[in-house]
Structures are given as structure tokens and as C-alpha cells.
Design a protein around this nucleic acid. Structure first.
Length: 260
DNA sequence: TGCCAGGCTTCAC
DNA sequence: GTGAAGCATGGC
């Protein structure tokens, strides 16, 4: 099927550091796996997209995944006209959407992401998926021994995964996070070994749809130091400061061509 | 070769 | 509560 979609750019979204397992299938085309579903989607000129799913699958699975029910144009229109940096970031990042990813996978991906770089995160996650013939389930990782994970390049993070899987299952698939508001979900997630403030914010933003979450990593720290000495004016952007954080993260990395 | 990466845990103080 | 050290590993 083909469909016209506003405010969606596949390449920018793929390069925005929120998903690590999109498989590039050529120019502006990706194979995306989400829960039990797989989609191949290609971006054509003038906001047109071609995808290999039925209209029903698109509406029930992929439209929510791409957060298409939300007007990103309104987010951009809300930016302070006097904030030249943020306006430039939003212009550069136009087309990035906050993906609504599966919670367990988001937890694993961002556990792996800590003190790591994006090319290596992708490599490690791809090796994990190759080892298990797909994204490892919590049951598989809960059983995984040290020797089993050796070779994936997890480094010291390897110990976090079986422990996180066990807790995730013990807590009925992290039910306390799913039912909670952003602050409570963040606090719950930090009870996992290896999940601190930054990783918890990422999971809230990318795995639970809490767009108020505002992850601060080394890049965002630099941005705040350079452009927001008084702190980012999050109160001006209630409920979507996380989207703007993502725009700034993408923009800052684009200035140094740090994509891969 | 050394620095750095979508940081966290541990341990002094 | 705050700050520094230590952590595995590979991209650059």
C-alpha cells in the first residue's frame, strides 16, 4: 500500500538514536521489526510512503508505532521564536518522531546503551539477535549464563541482562511501569540494576510514550552547557520536552556528522 | 594510541 | 548528598 504521511522522515528517525535495529534496505527504505510484526517501508518523494502491510495492519500496529496520531507540527509551532538554537534543531530534525517501542526491547537496548556509542550498540544488539534468532525474550535472557552472552560485546553490561530479565518476569512484565505516570515509572525502572536516571528517562520516552521524559546524556549535557546555562525551559513545553530533547540530540550530532 | 561513548555502581567523605 | 574511581569494549 501507499500512503501520504506528514512529519515523518525515515532516515532521520533511524539516525536519531532511539532505535538500533532498523535494517536499512537501500535508499530511504528500512525493514522494521516491532513485537511480532515486520514491516518494510520506503520513503518516496513528497511525503509519500510505500509499505508492505494491509491498511488494517497499518492502522492497528504501525500508525501507533510511528506515533502518527500526534501532530508534530504543533510541537514545532510551540517553540519559543526567540530560541534560535531550538528552532534550528527542530528545522534540522523535522520528520523525526518518537517511536512507541516495545517496553522489554527498549529496556534491553538502553541497558546496552550506557557508556557506549551508537555503532557499537547496534553491533552488540545485532549479535544478541543473531544468537537467539531474533530479539531475545525475557525468558531467554533470564536463563542466560555469562558464557552464553560472551561474544556479544556487552562488556560489563552483560551481568545486567539476566538480572533485568528475572525482575521483569517477577514483576509481571514490569506491570508497575506500564500502569504508572512518568515519575513513578522512572522511579520503578531505577530499581533495576544498571538502570539509572538517564536510561530510565530513555525507557520512559521510547518504550512507554512519556514525552515529558528528558534524557540527559553527554551530548545533551554539552547542549545545555552551551545554550541553556539557566537550564532548559521545560515548563514552556509541558508534556513534550522529550520530543525537543530528541530534536536537539539529533541536531547536535548532525553538526558533527556523527551518524552511522 | 588515546579518547570517548544516549552511565551506572560503589565507596569515601 | 556529593564526588571520584572503576568498569569492558570498539569506533574514531
Amino acid at each position: 500500500m501507499r500512503k501520504r504521511i506528514a512529519f515523518l522522515n525515515l532516515q532521520k528517525t533511524a539516525d536519531s538514536g532511539q532505535c538500533f535495529l532498523w535494517e536499512r534496505m537501500g535508499e530511504q527504505a528500512y525493514r522494521i521489526r516491532h513485537a511480532a510484526h515486520t514491516l518494510t517501508i520506503r520513503q518516496l518523494p513528497r511525503g509519500l510512503f510505500e509499505m508492505d502491510c494491509t491498511p488494517e495492519e497499518w492502522e492497528s500496529i504501525w500508525s501507533p508505532y510511528f506515533d502518527l496520531g500526534v501532530d508534530y507540527g504543533a510541537y514545532c509551532a510551540g517553540i519559543d521564536p526567540a530560541d534560535a538554537y531550538l528552532r534550528a534543531a527542530a528545522r534540522s530534525a523535522r520528520g523525526i518522531r518518537i517511536l512507541r517501542q516495545e517496553l522489554w526491547e527498549t529496556m534491553v537496548c538502553f541497558l546496552v546503551s550506557q557508556n557506549n556509542n551508537i555503532p557499537r550498540i547496534k553491533g552488540t544488539l545485532n549479535r544478541l539477535c543473531a544468537l537467539y534468532g531474533g530479539f531475545p525474550s525475557p525468558q531467554q535472557l533470564a536463563r542466560a549464563g555469562r558464557a552464553e552472552l560472551e561474544g556479544c560485546g556487552l562488556g560489563y553490561r552483560a551481568a545486567y541482562l539476566p538480572a533485568a530479565a528475572a525482575q521483569y518476569l517477577r514483576d509481571c512484565e514490569a506491570a508497575p511501569a506500564r500502569a504508572a505516570c512518568w515519575e513513578d515509572a522512572r522511579a520503578y525502572l531505577q530499581t533495576y540494576a544498571g538502570i539509572g536516571p538517564k536510561v530510565a528517562e530513555c525507557i520512559c520516552l521510547f518504550g512507554l510514550g512519556h514525552k515529558a521524559a528528558f534524557p540527559v546524556d553527554t551530548w545533551v549535557k554539552r547542549i545545555l552547557a552551551a545554550h541553556y546555562a539557566e537550564g532548559f525551559p521545560a515548563e514552556r513545553y509541558p508534556g513534550f520536552q522529550g520530543v525537543l530533547q530528541q530534536f536537539m540530540f539529533y541536531y547536535e550530532r548532525s553538526l558533527l556528522s556523527k551518524f552511522s
